[in-house]
Simulated scan of single mutants.
Amino acid sequence: MERLNRTFCEEFWNYYHDAVDLETMQQHLKRWTEEVYNKKRPHWSLGYKSPWRYLEETGLVKCPT
């Protein structure tokens, strides 16, 4: 959990620059998590693969694109 919080602090807040209402920020966070954190960003614990790539390669889940 601490690593996830650090990632949000270091990466999401660099991506998200607008100071707007909480609902809008949550929408940006959801989009960033889906598009960047889960699909593009390599994770050390997954052999430097994104979660989507890891799941596809292991055959655990067929991920939609």
Rank of each mutant, 00 (worst) to 15 (best):
M1I: 10
D21R: 11
K39E: 13
H17K: 15
G47I: 10
D18C: 15
C9E: 09
F8C: 15
T7W: 03
P64D: 11
W13G: 00
Y16S: 07
E23K: 15
L22R: 15
F8W: 13
N38W: 00
E35G: 05
L46D: 03
L4K: 01
Y15R: 12
M1A: 04
W52Y: 12
C9K: 11
Y37T: 06
T58E: 03
S45W: 08
R41C: 06
H17Y: 02
A19E: 08
H17Q: 06
K39N: 13
Y37W: 08
H28V: 03
F8P: 04
T58G: 02
F8D: 00
V20Y: 13
Y37A: 12
F12K: 07
C9A: 15
W44V: 11
C63G: 00
E2L: 13
R6P: 01
R31Y: 04
R3E: 04
K40A: 11
N38R: 03
Y16E: 09
Y54S: 11
V36E: 00
L4P: 05
W13N: 07
Y54V: 07
L29Q: 10
E34L: 10
V36A: 04
D21I: 10
E57L: 03
E23V: 05
Q26N: 14
R41L: 06
P51T: 03
C63W: 00
E10A: 14
P42D: 09
W32T: 11
E23A: 15
V20W: 10
R3A: 09
